[in-house]
Design a protein around this nucleic acid. Structure first.
Lengths: 252, 252
DNA sequence: TTCGTGCTATTGTTAGGACAAATGCAGCGG
DNA sequence: CCGCTGCATTTGTCCTAACAATAGCACGAA
C-alpha cells in the first residue's frame, strides 16, 4: 500500500475475448513487452495476482498462468508471502527450436545459403540407426554453406529420411530447411542437441576461410515430430569467432 | 476402449496427502520414473486426464499439471482430440542449473578438483561491470582444474563478489563451488550461459594434457540470485573430446 | 465411391472458491 | 534492548465446474 507502483495504461486496455488468442497469452505478451522495453523497470514489484485480475476482469488462475509463462522465461521471480518481481538480470534469448537461418533473419542479418551438394545415398549402418530406417534405404544428404553478410559462418550437413526425396536445391537456397519442412506440414516437436568442439576436417577450413586445423563449434541435432518419427539429423560446424550459443537457465 | 493400455499398479498406490510434497509432483515423479524405466513403453497412449484423476482421487487440474511437467521435459506429447502419448525419442538430460561437479557425480564418475589459485584482487573495469560492483572492489578469483578418474577435463575460472571473501581452497577441493554456495544459504535463480569454442591459451594445454593450440569448448556463465544480485561469473574450458553439452528442446 | 455432416472423445481455456504456507511487521513481554 | 507471538499479505496448492476447439470415425447423401 505504501509504494504502489504506477502501471502503464496500455497494460489494461481491453482484451480480445472473441479471437482465438488465449487471454493468458495476451496478458503475458503485454507484460513481456513492457518488461523488455523497460516500461516496467528491473526490480519493480508487480501487484498481487488478485488485484491484477480485478483490473483486467480476469480470474486468478488466468493471471497466474500468464505470470507463470514469464517466470519460466526468467523475466519474473515469485516468492510466496512477498510478491512477484521483475528480474534484474539481463536475459538472453534461449536456444529455441529454430534454425540458424531464422535466428539470423530475426537479428536483422541477411543470411545466404549455398548448396554444396544434395544427393540421395543408401544409408549406412550408423546413419540408418540415426534416422531409424533400414540400412540401405535411400536417404537425402545435404551439405550447405551458410553465410551472413557475405562472410561464411557455418557448414551444415543434414540427413533426411526417404519421404523428403523430392526437395530441390532451389528450395534450400532461399528458404532454409526448417521453414521448408513447415511449409510441407511437418512440425518438429522435440529435438536432441549436443554441442561440442573439434578441429576442422577435410575442406571445412577452405569453406569457412580459416586456417587448417582451427577450432570449430559443432552442433549435432536429431529432430522428431509429435509421433516420434525422425524428421532430420544434422551435423553443423560454426566458426567460433562468429557464432556461439546463449541460454538462460531458470532454477526450479 | 479397444486398445486399453494396462497400467502398472504402483502408479495408483496411495498418495501422501499430509506431507509437504505436492500431489501433482508425486504423480509426475511416478510417471517419469515409469517412463524412464520403460514400464510405460515409448509411444504408449495414456488414459485421458479425467479417468486418471478418478483412479487417483484427484481433480483434473492436478492431473493436468502433473502431465504438463512431463510435457515440458519432453517425455510426453499432448494433442487435443487425440490424447497424451509417451514420446518415442530418447531424451537426454537437459542442461541444468548444476555444476560440472554434480553432473559428474550423478553419472557415477568420481570428480576431483585441484585448486590452482585462489586470490583476492581488485576488480578491473570489465570484471566490475560483470559482477556489478565498483571498479577496484576486492573480489575473489579462483582457478581450478577438474579431473574425472584422474584425467584432466576442464579448467574452471570463477569470479566471486566481495561477500564470499572468506572461502578457502580446502572447501573447494571437496565440495564444488555451487554446493558450497548452497550450503551458505545462497540460491541461484537465474543464469545466463554462452557456449563457444577457441584455441588453448597460456598454460591450458599443459593443464589439460593436450597439444598447444588445440580446440577448447568454452562456457561463460553469470549466475544471479532471486534479487538479481550477481553470485558468480565463470569462464570454463573443457576438453572437447571428453565433454559436450546436451539439451532436449521442446516446441511450444 | 467420395464427400461432407454430425457425433464422440479428448485436450485447451477460463472461472471462482477454499485452505495452506511463507514472509514481514507490529506489538508485547522479558 | 531483544526475542517472541500473532496478524496481514501474498503466493502455492487443490477442488469443482463449464464451455471451446480439434481429431477421428461412422454414417448417409450425391
Amino acid at each position: 500500500m505504501s509504494t504502489e507502483p504506477v502501471w502503464p495504461a496500455e497494460l489494461f486496455t481491453d482484451l480480445d475475448r472473441t479471437g482465438p488468442v488465449p487471454l493468458y497469452y495476451q496478458i503475458s505478451s503485454r507484460l513481456e513487452r513492457a518488461i523488455r522495453e523497460g516500461v516496467i523497470p528491473s526490480g519493480a514489484r508487480l501487484e498481487n495476482e488478485i488485484s491484477i485480475g480485478e483490473k483486467l476482469g480476469l480470474s486468478r488462475p488466468t493471471v497466474r498462468r500468464a505470470i507463470q509463462e514469464l517466470v519460466d522465461k526468467g523475466l519474473l521471480v515469485r516468492r510466496r508471502g512477498i510478491g512477484t518481481q521483475v528480474v534484474q538480470a539481463r536475459v538472453s534469448r534461449p536456444v529455441e527450436l529454430t534454425s540458424l537461418h531464422e535466428d539470423l533473419s530475426h537479428s536483422g542479418i541477411k543470411p545466404s545459403t549455398r548448396v554444396l551438394s544434395l544427393e540421395r545415398v543408401p544409408a549406412d549402418a550408423q546413419t540408418a540407426q540415426l534416422l531409424n530406417v533400414d540400412p540401405g534405404t535411400e536417404i537425402t544428404r545435404i551439405r550447405r554453406l551458410r553465410s551472413a553478410d557475405g562472410t561464411p559462418m557455418a557448414v551444415l550437413e543434414n540427413l533426411l529420411p526417404p519421404e523428403f526425396a523430392d526437395i530441390t536445391a532451389e528450395h534450400l537456397e532461399n528458404k532454409g530447411l526448417y521453414e521448408m519442412l513447415r511449409a510441407r506440414g511437418v512440425t518438429i516437436k522435440i529435438a536432441n542437441q549436443t554441442i561440442g568442439a573439434r578441429r576442422t576436417q577435410g575442406d571445412e577450413h577452405e569453406l569457412l576461410d580459416i586456417p587448417k586445423g582451427s577450432p570449430l563449434l559443432t552442433m549435432d541435432r536429431v529432430a522428431f515430430d509429435q509421433g516420434g518419427r525422425v524428421i532430420e539429423a544434422g551435423h553443423h560446424c560454426y566458426r567460433p569467432d562468429l557464432y556461439s550459443f546463449s541460454t538462460t537457465l531458470v532454477a526450479r
